[in-house]
Write a protein that binds this DNA or RNA. Structure first.
Lengths: 206, 206
DNA sequence: CCTACCGATCGGTAGG
DNA sequence: CCTACCGATCGGTAGG
């Protein structure tokens, strides 16, 4: 709201502090939701990690559920900005190459992987506050990957007999399952397994 | 301990009642652990579903953790008896065919799938009481599936260039990811996707 | 943003 | 197997 950078210092007015505090809370929430899931995470623990009291946290996010949804929104923003910066081309093979790069990135962000592993399992319950979110997220993700395989077919790069829709669902399932193995043993080569899976469906190397 | 069947009726002595009650508790625990995970499940709710008080439950299982481990043991027994009854042969392709049959069975047992989806995600935390159990379980399962692919290679049924160890890890990951999708949308064709995956690695039809 | 509090619920124990 | 209880913790609110 001002051109002077010093105006954003802690002493000044404006909402810069509030915004920073919100992000601090969301980071702590993301970490704890990933560690123990939504149901078992306590507002008091998230607040303590953010350096405030738990009623202080509730000033920024009125309910635990609102905090969860804000956490998911924030992750989507970060992922969206990450996925769009590469320049691998928008054809099917390029999109699939980009997907491997995303898996490589995730294997350096354990917190993100933990968050989705914990919440996607929890959210299979119909009454979970993130149930609709994950339903829609899977629908959209599988559709996007299936479209990448369909585009690869137009390029003549898809192995004959491969159904793009099935290959899309399979690849998303593979990625989720690999995350579990990697979180458990810390050794599983997620990008390698994803790359091999994609290449087994294509007639060209990645 | 007696040859007279009527001696096992509710009024009589012996431990038949205790055994039946234990199984009742384990069934309720399996269901609730699947619905909300281990951490969020309460002994009181499991006890209520079993028709006893929660100190009554603690008479049969001294701690919540002991109940969890007993639940996992019971599931293993049931699965082991189910996996051994088919007669598909013990060669690689036969074992893989049996795996598809197991997935078909699981798609009629939502409770079992829920239990493993919820607990395997929770147990990625190093301090979870089932952490070691799932580490060992994945190690063993992936080894068994990898061995099936290795046997298939000896039969000349494996597609050239396929690494049995990688194919094993991929197939297990695929199964876990498909379970998530199926639990979420109730539509995903788990056996179809698993069968297609296996066939894409083989040179013979299943 | 805080302290102080609410009613509910938790795993486990005492004592029978 | 029960009732009754323990100390701890939960999400959320009151009041400032």
């Amino acid at each position: 709201m001002t051109l002077d950078d010093t105006a954003r210092s802690p002493r000044s007015g404006g909402y810069a502090n509030g915004r920073a505090r919100r992000e601090q809370i969301l980071d702590a929430a993301m970490a704890l939701f990933g560690e123990v899931g939504y149901r078992s995470a306590s507002l008091r623990e998230i607040a303590a990690r953010s350096g405030i009291s738990h009623p202080g946290l509730l000033h920024h996010f009125p309910t635990k559920e609102a905090l969860l949804l804000a956490t998911l929104e924030r992750r989507d923003e970060i992922d969206a900005s990450g996925m769009n910066e590469d320049g691998d081309g928008d054809d099917g093979v390029g999109l699939l190459r980009r997907l491997v790069a995303l898996v490589e990135l995730n294997s350096r962000r354990r917190g993100v992987v933990e968050l989705y592993a914990a919440l996607s399992a929890e959210a299979t319950s119909a009454d979970h506050p993130a149930h609709e979110y994950f339903l829609e997220r899977y629908r959209r993700t599988i559709a996007a990957v299936s479209r990448a395989f369909a585009l690869a077919r137009e390029q003549g790069a898809l192995r004959p007999g491969v159904d793009p829709a099935l290959a899309g669902a399979q690849l998303v399932a593979l990625m989720d399952g690999l995350q579990l193995q990697w979180l458990l043993d810390g050794r599983t080569d997620m990008p390698g397994a994803v790359r091999a899976q994609i290449e087994s469906q294509l007639t060209v190397p990645l």
